[in-house]
Design a protein around this nucleic acid. Sequence first.
DNA 1: GCCTTTTCTTGAACGGGTCAAGTTATCTGC
DNA 2: GCAGATAACTTGACCCGTTCAAGAAAAGGC
Lengths: 150, 150
Amino acid sequence: MDDHATEAEFEQLLRGADLRVTRPRLAVLRAVRRHPHADTGSVLAAVRTEEPTVSHQAVYDVLGALADSGLVRRIQPAGSVARYELRVGDNHHHVVCRSCGVVADVDCAVGVRPCLDASDTHGFVIDEAEVTYWGLCPDCSTSTTSDHRS
Amino acid sequence: MDDHATEAEFEQLLRGADLRVTRPRLAVLRAVRRHPHADTGSVLAAVRTEEPTVSHQAVYDVLGALADSGLVRRIQPAGSVARYELRVGDNHHHVVCRSCGVVADVDCAVGVRPCLDASDTHGFVIDEAEVTYWGLCPDCSTSTTSDHRS
DNA sequence: GCCTTTTCTTGAACGGGTCAAGTTATCTGC
DNA sequence: GCAGATAACTTGACCCGTTCAAGAAAAGGC
């Protein structure tokens, strides 16, 4: 992997968002890039493989700051904890497995801004339409017992 | 309100789902009908105005059982606790206010099963497409400070 | 290099939701 | 109607993701 190049990109991203460049932040960005849709705990674990001293609070803070500046996207399907991904600004959506909870990316077939024209918005000013597909992942749909969520 | 009629309907619904008819369950159904998109705490409070002795655990159990049988629908926008509604099976969606969190119903303009044809589903067997619109409610979009979420 | 401000560490606390054991109530069959 | 079987409810403890608060550390501007 050309980590030097992306490392510099991450720095650019942070500076562009008026965020200081710190080791925890770079480590979080690397972790989210390596583990798309990872929850906070997984990000923390991944970060600590490179930066063992980073606190869990730092990871919460960093993920919050990155999400606020739009550098990462936070998703949270019903019944799941918060998950994060680097893919941002391309209006893609997610499939969630009802059985094991795994998440995958889906490009919406309709186009760039699908379903954004709701029929009656009750006076809401809408800026985003988020689509979540629910179903069973390949593994869970072929297994004999179809539901083994804890 | 013609509560006798709907009371009988609620009984039918429960029996039809192989659920015993109990006072807590009827009270929860009434509460959800009266307070669409209410969270568990609000449902509990509403239930206790009629059945003061109902435990919080009972409300969790009842809402879970009703949701599992499809008598109520559970929604959980990112950053929100679980919310419940009686409107079921009509494939409607929700607008959520980014500022105050209020939820409103939206009939999708596209049709009965919008966006259900995802471009590449990675082998998932999809059974539902859930659309969440994000924006500002009328109150929050007209107030001077546009963001006062706690 | 120094100063200001942001960021991180430490450690406690919060709250929605769940677990578990025992009691109560609903329904079925007589 | 009544008794037994089983589903549902009460009580109370507990879990865990997330947040709060205070002080220490480090990044960036001068």
